[in-house]
Design a binder for these strands. Structure first.
Lengths: 168, 168
DNA sequence: TTAAAGTTTTTGGTAAGCCTAATATTAAAA
DNA sequence: TTTTAATATTAGGCTTACCAAAAACTTTAA
């Protein structure tokens, strides 16, 4: 019950799920361009999904998902949205947030995803919203708390958005 | 300058870095048991690291890192610590935090890591620390803000730590 | 309705990482 | 010092997932 599907399996299911939600059907070409792979790769993978009962595909026809495949696609999409929302809260630029969500959505423990989800609701529904976010943004720039009386931890200094060279 | 090293390359460098910091030297067996792979896999990978100038290894001798390999090992270790600290702040149990940090440490954009780091310092050094954390924990259990007057977002409900079956 | 253009599939190959089994080397114990 | 145990290495194979080139099929346009 632990880790059943490969990252790539999940990527394909998520892609098919999203494409179908958007245009009603998914062709091989849609999938391959969505995932930025060549058509033969998509054909090969879709065949495997078909054999595993996650997708349905007959030659030259559209791809659809079985209930199981669709469930996984939906779960991964939801995780993506959750993670993306979190990253945007902490001021990660949208494009980076999106691509990092693609990484995180696959292998995090469900409890971690749940707590990230909680954090997002907590911040968004807090009585001091959106001041909290503003304070955070100021802190990122200055390393100081705008409205507080307490000293900040020694040795800690905000990691400026403009100082990314080393990448720790 | 973007993504130069594979996840596994980084895993091996981080493992060697940590083992060396702990016991002064790294044998093949240390590495293979640290990463939970068989010795031949470690030998093969260490050989590649050697050929790429990231590690130094002569047959039957200890493995060490070159300056470049060590730098990468250190960066990944630091990332791990940052992410782990963040996950612990949001009440993810230590073991899960540790294994999820192993996943996240590799492919997140440096800016994302930086902002997570900022978030950790922000929370830890805040004037209302540690009340903020306590409020968050209560929110996780109840879905309510303890000290606030503002309604919480409709449709949102805290994802209880005990309700993890589906794993969204 | 046939030709051209576009899409899908097949075929054959590659690379990363893992494994087992067998062999070689080193370290420890008798 | 010689035997035994532990460790390291080589050899040969596997799986996943990618690709390019070529063949097969569909769709569109003449």
């Amino acid at each position: 019950m632990e880790k059943i599907f490969s990252r790539k399996t999940e990527d394909y299911l998520e892609a098919i799920f999203k494409i179908m939600n958007e245009k009603g059907y998914a062709k091989i070409k849609d999938i391959s361009s969505f995932l930025d792979v060549r058509p033969p790769s998509a054909v090969e993978m879709v065949k495997k999904l078909n054999d595993r009962g996650l997708a349905i595909h007959k030659k030259y026809e559209c791809v659809t998902l079985t209930p199981e495949g669709e469930e996984i696609g939906r779960i991964i999409s939801d995780r993506h949205a959750t993670i993306r929302a979190f990253l945007e809260i902490i001021s990660v630029p949208k494009e980076i947030a999106d691509s990092d969500a693609c990484v995180m959505e696959h292998e995090l423990h469900p409890e971690t995803i749940g707590q990230i989800k909680n954090l997002v609701s907590f911040v968004k529904s807090a009585p001091d919203h959106p001041e909290w976010l503003e304070h955070f943004e100021i802190f990122c720039k200055t390393g100081e708390h705008t409205c507080g009386e307490k000293k900040h931890a020694e040795g800690e200094k905000a990691h400026s958005l403009t100082t990314l060279s080393i990448g720790i």
